[in-house]
Write a protein that binds this DNA or RNA. Structure first.
Length: 555
RNA sequence: GGCCAGUUGGAGAAGUGGCUUAACUCACAGCCCUUUCACGGCUGCAUUCACGGGUUCGAAUCCCGUACUGGUCACCA
């Protein structure tokens, strides 16, 4: 028996399957030629990061728009860093954005023929490939201790040479199977390294969908492919999983760019189809020192997707913001198609910027305002209700009292050509509509009302009494406002602001002052949506009652 | 330090050798509209594309060098 085979059998006595078996078990997918198979491969180490959402969105969209497939794989090979239970949270958060994978790890279960999708459950699969590699003399057990490795590194750094396990520094690179067998039988601990045949003087040429053609230095590192705990490192898991799950487009962060030569050599050695790659830029923030840094959950609250949920930013708003930094032409498209669902927008790699954008909260807010203003009264009511159900029970109860009443309030200056844009998030709503509810109004009335101090109490009372007598809620808005002007004149106010400014002494105030008195009476505030609509929604009985209450209060 | 990537206004960017005295969006400022607020309209905001050199009749666009920013060099992903 060949010594390499003997070594392989010694290390993996229970591995009987071969790569051919795996090829049969996980055959190429039956999809169109240009269908893209993408994936999101998170580590279960916390909640969904805004940067991950960004990346997932790109993966998801490219798969969808090519009638391809998007799946999720859990990369949990680092048990030390794993935070239990975060995998499912991740999936739930993605679901909030309607990002639902076609297969893979789905939080509470797995789905799909390429299972398992959880790396820690795939140890046997990796071992099959590693066993084959050892048989072919392309991988070897390395017995260097971590102390030894550290010493190597120190020496290399001191001598100012490239650190790492390569060339003559790869101590066990040329270990004979015989010696390896002996040491293993001797119970010496070891990891398994890939036996690189690269040379740092050579260049390889690879193509990145976002960055174009890249000239990179060939890999010569003998990387660890199997850790002491029996699980693979990222590089090896990437090779095996993306091959057998038949990923054909790997979209991942640019931090992976430096290890691309490793992956290139790995795929080449296996003689497997090298997938397409797209290395995305990082979403950034300005750092304390004025430079830039990655958007970080530790320092930036907006780095956690849950931030947007808490405040009730519309999810579509966040998605559309991300689309604007993913593809620079999205904004133009949105302008040309103001009411089209953003799913209709096709992502392209040539509109993909290769440098990281600064996360711009101002722009997010603006887009959210836009999104909220375009919703119908029913949509915004439903969405607000959903949000309030978990984040603001008081608001939820308000909607529960009378949903159609709430809808009417939300309908003010909505569903028209240029809708009102005053909310950027659901949490803005409650405060500005509370006065529509009598019990809240009565509470608010206890505070001092912000009437214009330049107008006498008598005049204010006069305006209120006259308004009560003369207002006609059955008029349309134009006629109603003309009537308000008439009321103003009746009370000695000017019905035209410009006119008033020319001749202030002749009047007690102007139409704006009159409207303001009515507004404050109805809302207890100086700012409000359209007064006509407010009066319509309150109805004659209620607005008259409010006038009486205010008269009684200020008299 | 080595290697890799990037560098157009406060931010996102368009731009792929002449159409650019650099589009569009956000932010900011001013004006206008206006019964408040919000909306909307108009105007302003890079004579210049990190810097230096070169190629060319012509460069933000091509080449070289420098600087700066980010990434990476783990039995982490």
């Amino acid at each position: 028996m060949n010594e390499y085979i003997e070594l392989a059998n010694l290390i993996f006595p229970n591995v009987t399957e071969t790569i051919e078996d795996l090829e049969k078990r996980y055959p190429p997918r039956n999809l169109n030629k240009d269908a893209l198979i993408t994936r999101f491969a998170p580590s279960p180490t916390g909640f969904l990061h805004t940067g991950s959402l960004f990346m997932t969105l790109v993966n998801y969209r490219f798969a969808k728009q090519t009638n391809g497939l998007f799946y999720i794989r859990l990369e949990d090979t680092d048990q030390k860093r794993e935070i239990k239970g975060t995998g499912i949270t991740l999936l739930n958060e993605l679901k909030e954005f309607n990002i639902i994978p076609d297969e893979g790890y789905l939080g509470d279960h797995e789905e799909g023929k390429y299972a398992p999708y959880i790396q820690s459950k795939r140890a046997n699969i990796y071992d099959i490939v590693i066993k084959e590699l050892i048989k072919r003399g392309l991988a070897y057990p390395c017995f260097m201790s971590s102390e030894e490795l550290e010493e190597l590194r120190r020496m290399q750094e001191k001598k100012k040479i490239r650190p790492g396990c390569y060339g003559k520094y790869a101590k066990y690179h040329s270990i004979t199977p015989k010696e390896a067998i002996e040491r293993i039988k001797n119970n010496e601990p070891y990891v398994i390294r890939f036996k690189s045949s690269g040379n740092e003087l050579n260049k390889i040429s690879v193509y990145d969908e976002i960055r174009g053609k890249l000239e990179l230095t060939e890999n010569d590192l003998d990387i660890i492919i199997r850790k002491k705990d029996g699980l693979p490192t990222y590089h090896f898991a990437h090779l095996v999983d993306d091959h057998f799950m038949r990923t054909n487009l790997v979209i991942r962060g640019e931090e992976w760019l430096p290890s691309l030569p490793i992956h290139y050599e790995l795929f080449k050695t296996m003689n497997w189809q090298f997938p397409k790659y797209a290395h995305t830029p990082t979403v950034q923030k300005v750092s304390d020192t004025g430079g830039r840094r990655k958007l970080s959950k530790r320092y930036d609250e907006e780095a956690a997707v849950s931030y947007f949920f808490n405040y009730g930013y519309p999810k579509t708003g966040l998605i559309e913001y991300l689309l604007t930094i993913i593809n620079s032409n999205f904004e133009e498209w949105r302008l040309a198609n103001p009411y089209t669902n953003n799913n209709e927008f096709k992502l392209s790699f040539d509109k993909f910027s290769s440098d990281g954008a600064l996360f711009d909260m101002d722009k997010v807010k603006n887009i959210c305002k836009e999104v909220l203003s375009k919703m119908t009264k029913k949509e915004i009511t439903d969405e607000t209700y959903t949000w309030a159900s978990t984040y603001d029970l008081e608001l939820k109860q308000l909607i529960d009292r009378d949903r159609s009443y709430f809808e009417e309030i939300m309908n003010i200056e909505r569903e028209i050509e240029k809708p009102r844009k005053d909310y950027e998030k659901y949490s803005d709503i409650k405060e500005s509509i509370l006065f529509f509810y009598d019990d809240y109004y009565n509470e608010m009335l206890k505070e001092e009302l912000p009437f214009n101090s330049l107008i006498s109490k008598e005049d204010t009372l006069n305006v209120l009494n006259t308004f009560k007598k003369e207002n006609d809620p059955s008029l349309n808005e134009t006629d109603w406002f003309n009537n308000l002007k008439r009321i103003a004149t009746l009370c000695g106010f000017c019905d035209n602001v410009k006119e008033y400014k020319k001749n202030k002494e002749a009047y007690k105030g102007h139409i704006g002052d009159v409207a303001s008195i009515i507004r404050i009476t109805m809302c207890t505030k100086t700012k409000s949506p359209n007064l006509y609509n407010i009066l319509q929604i309150l109805g004659k009985d209620r607005y008259e009652k409010r006038i009486e209450q205010v008269i009684a209060k200020i008299k």
